[in-house]
Design a protein around this nucleic acid. Sequence first.
DNA 1: GTTTTCCAATGAAAGCTTTCATGGACAAGG
DNA 2: CCTTGTCCATGAAAGCTTTCATTGGAAAAC
Lengths: 334, 334
Amino acid sequence: MNIYDISQRAGVSIATVSRVLNGSSRVSESTRRKVEQVMASCGYTPNAFARGLGLGSMKTVGLLCADFADPYLAQAMAYLEAFLRAHGYDCLLGGCGAAGNKQGMIDLLLNKHVDGLVLVGSSLVESDPAMNQPILDAAKRLPVMILGAALDGPGIYSVFCDDRGATEEAVTRLLAQGCRRVLYLYHSPSYSGLKKLQGYRDALASAHVPEDTALIRLMEGERANPTAVRDELLRLRGEGLRFDAVMTSDDKLAQGALKYALKAGLAVPGELSIVGFNDSTLACCCEPELSSVDNKLRSQCVQCVETLAAVLAGKDAPKRTVFSGELTCRGTTV
Amino acid sequence: MNIYDISQRAGVSIATVSRVLNGSSRVSESTRRKVEQVMASCGYTPNAFARGLGLGSMKTVGLLCADFADPYLAQAMAYLEAFLRAHGYDCLLGGCGAAGNKQGMIDLLLNKHVDGLVLVGSSLVESDPAMNQPILDAAKRLPVMILGAALDGPGIYSVFCDDRGATEEAVTRLLAQGCRRVLYLYHSPSYSGLKKLQGYRDALASAHVPEDTALIRLMEGERANPTAVRDELLRLRGEGLRFDAVMTSDDKLAQGALKYALKAGLAVPGELSIVGFNDSTLACCCEPELSSVDNKLRSQCVQCVETLAAVLAGKDAPKRTVFSGELTCRGTTV
DNA sequence: GTTTTCCAATGAAAGCTTTCATGGACAAGG
DNA sequence: CCTTGTCCATGAAAGCTTTCATTGGAAAAC
């Protein structure tokens, strides 16, 4: 059952059927109705491959996610999928193994002839510029959106949160409420990971609180899991490290800090204040609920899809869109 | 740069180039090498659409997920994507709005001519058989895998956990350790939701503990969120309902129960035992960590992909594969 | 009544690969 | 030296849609 069959049964040419299919204008109302009727009665669906061949596009966008199992990134994927679908695009999944084979994933998506690429998760953008070459190469062939980090180059569009500013604001808040020794936990030395760290430092500097490098801890990979974080903090405490607040780059780390407090019998926020980042669904899973920096994920996703759709439609679009994070205070800060 | 260009430069016919591309046998080693060399030097990539048109397949599988934002299902998606890729298949995303427009999603995927469909999440299979018609229709055209629930029909293959048995085992355990009033919280009256409920009842019956319908609570949609669960339990307690254990159909509900215990100042597991389901990453986010039923998600996903690959290769495959759940005891049970 | 204009419909080519049926060359066997 | 068989390579068709350039016809203008 192809377009020839339909054209025959409807008594028109295949070109006319095609125009009905594509909603093109030059078709009389009566012809259109007749063709549509025949298509419906035959249960005809146009062949997607032939269509792709003719149009050079199957209206599909490739999604690369740093880590699917991360609830925050999964939420981002859900938003993106929904918004892209609303714009008529389907989503092809690129792998999760960001570090391992980013190049391979991008190649795969390129070979599938997707119309555009969305990179989800700041850790897909390395702080070392040379490592980002695969992205730059991909952007030569199709538009690339970066969600959650910034990268400049032709064909690359970034949508992200002012991580530095948001972290500075949150830490300033902790200092203002009397905390003096703020432990900083971060899970990735990526582009945005370093931005956040900068925000932490800026806040200390503004408040004239001396920086103690012992209070800055990178908890990467497995070590970012709540239980691992809890145990690490218990260990640090055993070694005599003192701190009255914990600022984190991710809610998972904050959960670990909360586990530590519960285990150690510390009152939260009385003896220990904790601030998470991303304001993901995790934040409300704890008791007390996490204060966390809301980085406007939904708005970022909306903007990301809008920008991509604009670019694909040949319109102008902003190369960078920045959102401001905002601290949502719940039960782990005063 | 198409197959003609390559054939010319390599001094062979396009058919030969195609056979090199597809790893077909009838090509002499020297010719193969020459063609590959030319392809590499030209940076040639075959057109995916034309290929799909010729082969009638683009080696793509459609993934439909009940709820992307659920960490457990997101983990399943991550596994599936990785395993499918290892088998040479790409993944096309179907929407998350399971209840709303399952039919639409399936249609969309069918129109994209995917090779198979994987339905992720038990709530995609309704307990009312009539509601599953869209799935049965889809299965007439391509193989459909159901992950996490069972559905019978031509072209449908199910991989799932014995939810009833696992729940029965967990509740029996709670009863054995002395609990007498076990609150049962479930989040979906779907196929597997009801199976689990049956397991709860069977355990009570076996132990000759009378059933109290006030102890069986459906917490659907928004009401399944941890905070909502906590508040609901506080309310029930205020109304005088007593219970010494909480069995749940999902870790999120168990987290809510734990929040309730922490808020109400109840000792866990001393005064209240709690058991989650799925043994997702959430289980270890709490303090104490959740005891939870491990339903072997990874194995399920492996099997799911194996079965689908077998079916697509024209081989025989089991219509149903059942895994046994297993209670992982952590900090919320004795 | 004739010419112009415009719109709807058409034919044919383009887009790129896969694969079947066919052809040719070469080696081995008679 | 001829025949047979094998193996590799080739030409051409099939797969289905989109779209450009063109034609046909009807309505409007003169």
